[in-house]
Write a protein that binds this DNA or RNA. Structure first.
Length: 245
RNA sequence: UAGUCUUACCC
């Protein structure tokens, strides 16, 4: 079952969800019953290709087979609905999970917070963030990244930077996505100098730049007409043996 | 073995 699940998940991640379903049918024919992991992978797969109707169908089917959704399955549905801007429906799913005796975890909440940002409900995003803190649930680096990204996208980079400070105080270690988000936000707000400082800070913190970082910097340098610097950076990246996009 | 964040490109 674990081997089947691994392959089914890999197919889903390649967008080959129908193939994954076929494999699942084959598995059933061989007498192996799918479990909550199998269904979660398939539901996630359908969500990723925008077929939420198919995802919901599988969601009902699994309950019918007495395979009950867990916090992963519910979070997948919450995230997919949020990404379509359907926050009301996403909250219904959270209510549903509570009724099923499943507690939403930080991942579920992170998806919801991001959902609020996606539809520009800044106030609601902050309220939910504060509520999580009040309820004593541990925030993680993703929670902060989502808040930082939200503020950067509405050009409130200083608010993003205060969350960046706050995460240090809470002993949450920024990762490459944290730095990338802030560097991009600073660049797009024209604060190239501060962005460069962050690049140094990132290096100092032992966080390695990735494709995102380079794309962000190359994009910023090109748009600032610092084509010479962009070419120099591009050359460095190539020399380091990293493939730029 | 499954879920949440960051760039460009495309639209």
């Amino acid at each position: 079952l674990v081997i089947y699940n691994t392959i089914i998940d890999a197919l889903c991640k390649e967008g080959l969800v129908n193939e994954a379903c076929n494999l699942c049918s084959k598995m059933i024919n061989k007498g192996i019953s799918p479990d909550v992991v199998t269904y979660s992978s398939l539901i996630h797969g359908f969500c990723c290709i925008g077929k939420l109707d198919e995802a919901s169908r599988l969601f009902k089917e699994m309950e019918h087979r007495k395979i009950y959704p867990n916090v992963y399955t519910f979070s997948i549905m919450v995230d997919a609905l949020c990404k379509e801007g359907k926050i009301v429906e996403a909250k219904c799913v959270v209510d549903m999970m509570l009724e099923c005796g499943q507690e939403p975890d930080i991942v579920t909440y992170n998806a919801l917070i991001d959902g609020y940002w996606l539809i520009n409900k800044v106030r609601e995003a902050i309220e939910l963030f504060d509520n999580i803190v009040k309820r004593g649930l541990a925030l993680d680096v993703w929670t902060y990244n989502i808040m930082i990204n939200g503020y950067c996208k509405i050009k409130r980079v200083d608010d993003a930077l205060s969350f960046f400070k706050e995460m240090h105080c809470n002993n949450i270690v920024p990762n490459v996505a944290t730095y990338n988000t802030l560097i991009d936000g600073l660049c797009k707000s024209g604060r190239i100098f501060r962005a460069q400082e962050l690049v140094k800070e990132m290096h100092h913190a032992g966080v390695f730049p990735d494709f995102f970082t380079y794309n962000i910097l190359l994009d910023a340098l090109c748009k600032c007409k610092h084509l010479d610097s962009a070419i120099a950076l591009y050359q460095k990246i190539v020399d380091w043996g990293i493939k730029p996009d």
